[in-house]
Amino acid sequence: MTTRLTVSASSDADTEGRIGQAVAALPMSLHPGGKDADLVGLAGGAGWVDAAMAAIEAGARGVLVVDPSAADARALAERDVPVVLDGRWTYNPAVLDSAAAFSARNDAESLVEVRADVPVGSDLERVLLSQLALVRTAVAPLVQLSFDRWNARGWDARGTLESGARVALAAILTDALEPAASLRIIKPTDAVRLTVPDPATARPGHVVVSSPEGATLLVTKWESAHRVAWRTLHGLVTAGATGTDLAGFERDVELVRGARAAVSAA
C-alpha cells in the first residue's frame, strides 16, 4: 500500500514549481498539508538553504527545492533528510532514460553539446546550475569549466568530463523559442540526442540513439519533470534514503564559482 505524505509549499515555490498540480497528479502518494506537513516545497532563490534547514528543524521528513540558486548547502547535506533539487530539466523522465546510452558513449573521443533556450530575463547562473545537473545526470559530472562568453544574451562555455570528453555548453536567452534544453553526444560512429521541454509540461522529452545501423527513438513518457521530482522525494522518504542531489550540486557550485571568478578576473 502506498504511504500518503502531506505537502506544504511556499507561495513562490508553488508558482515556480507548479507544486499544486504535481501533488494533485499523485493523489495516492501526496496530499496537501499544513505547517506540520511531511514534505516541504521551497523556491530556490536566495536563502533556500536556511529555509530548508528550518523546515527540517520543524519536522519535515523531506524537502524539494525548485530551481535552486548557488548556495553553500554543506550543512544541509549533513542532515539525514532527503532533499530533491528540482532543476529545470534533471527530473524529466527522458533524462533518466537516456543515461545508459550517454554513459556508454562517454570517452575521450566524444563531443558533448548542451544548449539551453530560456526566456529573456532568466537568471543565468541558475540556468547554468540546471544545465550542469542535466549533464551530470545524463552523462557524467563536468570536472572543468571555462567561459568563452558570458553576457546578457547567454553564454558559450567549454568543459571536460573525467573521461576526457569535451563539452560545449551554451545558453541563449530568447522569447522566440520554446524554453527547452538539448543535449547531444557525438562520436565518430554514433550519437545520442536528447531534447527536454520545460519542467511544467507533460510533453515528453525525446531520446534518439543513432549508429550506422539506424536511429532509435526511445520510449516517450508524458510526465512532467516536476511530477517525477515529487515522486522521487516520496520514494526517498518512504525508503529511508537521502539521494545524491546535494552532493552533485555542491560540486557544480564549486565549478561555477571557479569559472565565474575567472571571467571576472579576465
Partner: peptide, 10 residues
Amino acid sequence: VSAVNSHSWE
C-alpha cells in the same frame, strides 16, 4: 560554427 564527421544515422 560547428561540424562533426560521424557515421551516425542522423
